[in-house]
Amino acid sequence: MTRDGEGPRDDVGIDASLSARELIFREVPEVRTRTWGEPDHESVSHSERRGLPRPVRSGTRYTDVHLDYRLAGRLRLREQPSGPPPEEE
């Protein structure tokens, strides 16, 4: 799992870690990720795997598995000069 302080500070994030002595997928899971932001955003996902190929196979016995996953997003704001809004015509 990644640490706080890596790169830009993210506004939201999900971190997950998993270690297992043995892992067997009876079905290959479908993983979906989604990020959103307004007015604009940027996101980062990062994973570290050990003992777990990409993609995994159903019915295969994986041993000594370790997985770190991180998904984070942050607002991307345009720097605007401070001041009153322009007069409307």
């Binding site: 270690s19 297992a20 990720t33």
Partner: peptide, 19 residues
């Protein structure tokens, strides 16, 4: 701003788990 992770269907056996 937001993030979401979703697993469609999960069917597995896992032993000696730390999560």
């Amino acid at each position: 701003v937001g993030v979401e992770v979703e697993l469609g269907r999960v069917d597995l056996t896992i032993k000696g788990v730390e999560a």
